[in-house]
Design a protein around this nucleic acid. Structure first.
Length: 1029
RNA sequence: GCCGAAGUGGCGGAAUUGGUAGACGCGCACGACUCAAAAUCGUGUAUCGCAAGAUGUGAGGGUUCGAUUCCCUCCUUCGGCACCA
């Protein structure tokens, strides 16, 4: 018998597959296409660890099955080879990162090749190669030459925009552009200088130049990424390298107007077969919110002349706020501007406390945003001398500046409604600003007219204990309805006297008013119930002799327990009162509800009111996104040059001849001015070339298109190739790219579709994310912890097949798992088991020629002389297992449930081993479903069994529906839901027969003897449950 | 703080339109083969209990004849977001 020598076998077949071009993909093919893609790796010096191939193994198994199922499978691999580590290497060694990167690519390829992936290596791409980045640059220029037409909802060429400007100016242009784009006429446009025109167009281009804040470290002379910054000893940010101070600095950058695609990026998610988790992350990242823009008039004046007639105030213009809760407009008690709001400049002189305001703004400036958030405390200052007018009710409210309002979201100003917004609420509490309820919680129940009364509730305190009323396991505050002619205080005291008996009590604090909505049965109208809360102290134990309340039981509880119980009560205002009594905070009601104290809008729901109130005050409904335009520039050497040059007049020109290659430089160090090393290259600067390079995500945002036709010299890929391959059917990679690569790729793909290159709206139809593999110690696999396992070693010791089977078997694909050096042996044993069976089958198949080829058999137990009937029987039972396994494996691979697929094959192998005979035909089918997982061993056995063509080009076995039907099944007998016995019955037994059989069963009788049978529950094919008294 | 996912033997995990919890694998124990070892094969392996049986899927409660699965509260871990009005 041939030994299972994995080293020899794997090498042999890898060579053969390469020589016979088994995995070469036809372009285009006649068969249906299927595109299976891995996220291509960044080739780092550290090489691969066993975590990396997990996704590649999964996609390879999947691709192999699809190929055997008759699809023309595109399964390529390449390298995302621009990046920081190679640049660092260059700085250290003063050598060009190019050859170094190529060496790493070779190393990676070798590491991947020994695992036996079915990549078509003839399609390899690497983003750092000029023949590749030529097209990255080409796409950049297309983006530079494009603007977004919102009416047509697509990108258009900038020349068309220029035509429109020449004809009509920009008044009727519905484009995504800079917020501060002025309106101009055709005449004005024509009068602009070339420079002015350029600046104006820059406000429209999808790739545009602008400024942004960066983390600048003057000691290092570089810009730092957020993750290169750590907290210094005094809490201030310092560089991770060297611990030098870091400051914010405004720097010239290139941007991508990804916000133009916000809506399409959001709506496109719907049809994608991605995990809901990733979709959710992208959704949050895009952050769509629909709201209103509402203007508040600003006038001179102060709190003290609130009662003065409006006519005596000076009109100072207006500020616009953005809100998603226009329904709460009547609850506005102040207006807040972000520090640095442009309006401030205009009204400086009107602000009577300007000195203090300036001081405050100074303090804010010196604090980083992260610090402020960390401190958690909101700060602000009132602008004295000016007031805002609420457009809904003409009320005059103060204007504040506060750091909790962001300058770069919405309009940089908000209307504050402390009763219905957490942040405003917190701020109002701190600065003692008024809080006004304008939305009441709606409850579903109908109530009788006489029940809709205002109520008074008391938080009654005695010696650190609180009195609550218990009723049917629910707890609430003591109190009750206010009778006619009573004040809330009187009502509360009366209720306490009547319900609990205390007479010597004192109201010590008013907790405010809360409101709730009810439906009246009688007139079908919504009505508000007002609730008034108080803190009540018990002065002595003096009691009214009247008996306590009959249903509700008064209970004294420690404060924390009382709070907890009351918070769980369904009555919102009670929990609010108890919160207010003890934390001073209370809750604010942020949900939608029904309007109160809102004039003619009372009784409308929040949803209805938003639109109506916005219209009433002349505001406009508007959609906003959290997502910002993406920075598209790095001040580094090792990236794609941006193919633009600026002449001495400051006019930007496109570089016509692509690729614009990276120049050779003497030093790879940053220039020290914050510019890239390219700024130090005389020849480069002489041409006026852009010194920024593209960010890491440029090359990876379209590589999946290049694989379709990787050698094409005249286009990204030929039209024909893109028409055939269209999009990626199955994309496999890490979830960490959710808001980076996966979003940017979708953006570029949509743009490429707009300009007629890509054929589909979305690039990746299905996406599967692999979990990480950690070290055996539970930590992240890294050199630092010394827990790195290298796949080369595993392949050497156990074989690639074992590695593949093990990584598939470890656990659910999307789950993170620790590597186990012990468990892998199980996968090796499984392959060895199959190998031994294979060797026996081969032997038997040779021997069987005397008996005729159709009944080729394998006597695995070594026994012989069994007659034909036994053979048939064993074969049928085994066939059932085999066909069930084929079904399961086929489905599991399609669903990426590789662990259970391997498990099913193990079960099948165990059964085959136990069986007296396995037909060669059946064993071959087993080999075929194993082939995606263990491509080498299965190929070897397949050929030994006489096949001439590779197993990987064979036809995927289909399961026979008839063969997997069981004729008898096992039914559990339960008595009171406890399993007491099992019986085997024919599958087609009637329910009545089964019930009869069950009741006659001795085990059943033992448990039901003398008991009344209440019910018999029959779950078809599963169990019979007898319910007894 | 908010949003999302998860929590099952000594370990990785299986089972969810609510229906026999622990498949498969690792580890461990015993046995067969062997002079012996390795390999292989067989048997056993949630907990308590001699057994009958009882208990058991992070904790507590609920719905149900029946809950790992559905609902509520809480705890822990991981991921995302970071005052987005």
């Amino acid at each position: 018998m041939k030994q299972y020598d994995h080293l020899k076998i794997e090498k042999k077949w890898q060579k053969e597959w390469e020589a016979k071009k088994v995995y070469k993909t036809a372009n285009p093919g006649k068969m249906k296409k299927h595109y299976v893609l891995d996220m291509f790796p960044y080739p780092s010096g550290a090489g691969l660890h066993v975590g990396h191939p997990r996704g590649y193994i999964a996609s390879d198994v999947y691709a192999r099955m699809k190929r055997m199922q008759g699809f023309n499978v595109l399964h390529p691999m390449g390298f995302d080879s621009f990046g920081l580590p190679a640049e660092q290497y260059a700085i250290q060694t003063k050598k060009h990162p190019g050859p170094f990167t190529e060496k790493l690519v070779e190393l990676y390829k070798k590491q991947l090749e020994i695992i036996g992936f079915s990549y078509d290596w003839s399609r390899e791409v690497a983003t750092h190669r000029p023949e590749y980045y030529k097209w990255t640059q080409w796409i950049f220029l297309k983006l530079y030459d494009a603007w977004y037409d919102q009416t047509k909802d697509k990108a258009r060429d900038i020349s068309e925009l220029v035509k429109i400007f020449n004809k009509n100016g920009n008044e009727n242009v519905n484009a995504v552009c800079d917020q501060n784009t002025p309106t101009f006429s055709a005449k004005e446009w024509k009068q602009m200088s070339e420079m002015e025109k350029q600046n104006m167009l820059m406000k429209y281009r999808l790739a545009y130049e602008g400024y942004s804040e960066v983390n600048w470290c003057s000691k290092l002379g570089t810009v730092l990424a957020n993750d290169e910054i750590v907290d210094g000893p005094d809490g201030k940010p310092v560089s991770e390298r060297g611990g030098f101070g870091v400051e914010k600095k405004s720097m010239r950058q290139w941007f991508m107007r990804i916000t133009a695609y916000a809506d399409r990026l959001l709506s496109g998610l719907e049809g994608l077969d991605w995990s809901s988790h990733i979709k959710e992350i992208q959704k949050n990242w895009i952050g769509k919110s629909e709201g209103s823009e509402i203007s508040f008039k600003i006038v001179s004046g102060d709190k003290k002349d609130l009662d003065n007639p409006l006519g005596r105030r000076t009109d100072l213009g207006s500020i616009t706020v953005f809100t998603t809760r226009a329904d709460t407009l009547f609850g506005v008690t102040y207006v807040v501007l972000a520090p640095g709001h442009l309006f401030l400049e205009n009204i400086k002189t009107r602000i009577s406390n300007w000195k203090e305001v300036e001081k405050y703004l100074d303090v804010i400036k010196n604090k980083s945003e992260e610090d402020r958030i960390k401190e958690g405390e909101k700060t602000g200052i009132e602008l004295k001398g000016i007031m805002a007018i609420n457009p809904a009710n003409g009320e005059v409210v103060p204007v504040w500046i506060a750091d909790y309002v962001l300058a770069n979201y919405g309009t940089g100003a908000v209307m504050a409604v402390p009763a219905h917004d957490e942040r405003d609420f917190e701020f109002a509490k701190k600065y003692k600003l008024p809080i006004r309820d304008v939305v009441a919680k709606m409850i579903g129940e109908h109530h009788h007219e006489n029940n809709i009364r205002d109520v008074a509730e008391g938080v009654i305190i005695k010696d650190d204990q609180v009195l609550v009323m218990e009723y049917k396991n629910q707890y609430g505050l003591p109190g009750g309805g206010i009778e006619e002619g009573e004040t809330p205080e009187q009502a509360l005291l009366r209720e306490i006297r009547e319900e609990i008996g205390y007479t010597d009590v004192e109201i010590v604090e008013y907790l405010g008013q809360a409101n709730r909505y009810y439906f009246s049965d009688r007139d079908q109208k919504k009505k508000v119930r007002h609730a008034y809360g108080y803190v009540v102290k018990i002065l002595s134990n003096k009691k009214n002799p009247t008996a306590p309340h009959e249903i509700d039981k008064p209970v004294w509880l420690p404060i924390s327990e009382a709070i907890q119980k009351v918070q769980q009560s369904p009555i919102y205002y009670q929990s609010n009162f108890i919160d207010r009594a003890f934390s001073g905070m209370g809750q604010c009601f942020v949900d939608n509800g029904v309007l109160i104290q809102s004039g003619q809008f009372d009784s409308l729901t929040s949803e209805e009111a938003r639109k109506k109130i916005t219209e009433f005050v002349g505001g406009k409904l508007i959609t906003k996104y959290k997502m910002r335009d993406a920075i598209f520039a790095r001040q580094r050497y090792w990236g794609e040059p941006i193919p633009l040059s600026t002449d001495k007049d400051g006019i930007i020109h496109e570089v016509k001849k692509l690729p614009l290659k990276l120049p050779n430089v003497k030093s790879y160090e940053p220039a020290g001015t914050g510019e890239s090393p390219l700024a130090g290259v005389k020849d480069w600067v002489k041409h006026g070339y852009e010194t920024n390079t593209m960010p890491g995500w440029a090359g990876s945002s379209w590589y999946f298109l290049r694989y379709m036709d990787p050698k094409n010299k005249s286009a990204i890929a030929s039209k024909q190739a893109i028409k055939y391959w269209k999009d990626v059917d199955m994309y496999v990679g890490g979830a960490e790219h959710a808001t980076g690569h996966l979003l940017y790729s979708r953006f570029w793909h949509k743009f490429l579709k707009d300009i007629g290159i890509a054929q589909t709206e979305e690039p990746f139809k299905a996406l599967r994310n692999q979990g990480l593999i950690g070290g055996a110690d539970g930590r992240k696999m890294s050199k630092r912890w010394g827990n790195v396992i290298n796949p080369d070693e595993i392949v050497k010791t156990y074989g690639a097949d074992t590695l593949r089977v093990y990584e598939a078997f470890m656990g659910p694909f999307d789950q993170s798992l620790p590597w186990s050096t012990e468990s892998i042996i199980g996968s090796r044993r499984f392959i060895e088991k199959v190998w031994r069976m294979g060797e026996k089958t081969i032997l038997a198949s040779h021997n069987s020629f005397q008996k005729g080829p159709r009944v080729a058999r394998a006597g695995l137990s070594g026994k012989s002389g069994l007659d034909q009937t036994v053979f048939e029987k064993n074969s049928a039972a085994l066939k059932k297992v085999l066909h069930k396994t084929i079904k399961k494996v086929t489905e599991d691979i399609a669903n990426f449930n590789f662990n259970t697929a391997v498990s099913a094959m193990m079960i099948c192998a165990n059964e085959m081993e136990k069986a007296e005979y396995v037909s060669v035909e059946d064993f071959k089918k087993f080999l075929q479903i194993l082939a995606p997982f263990a491509p080498h061993a299965s190929e070897d056995l397949w050929r030994e069994l006489g096949e001439k063509k590779s197993i990987h080009l064979s036809e995927w076995p289909l399961y026979d529906k008839k063969k997997i039907i069981d004729d008898t099944i096992t039914i559990a007998i339960q008595v009171n839901s406890k399993v007491r016995a099992e019986i085997s019955i024919p599958i087609d037994m009637s329910e009545n027969d089964l019930k009869k059989l069950v009741l006659e069963n001795p085990a059943t009788k033992q448990w039901t003897e003398g008991k009344e049978i209440k019910r018999i529950i029959h779950v078809k094919g599963k169990l019979v449950n007898i319910v007894i008294a």
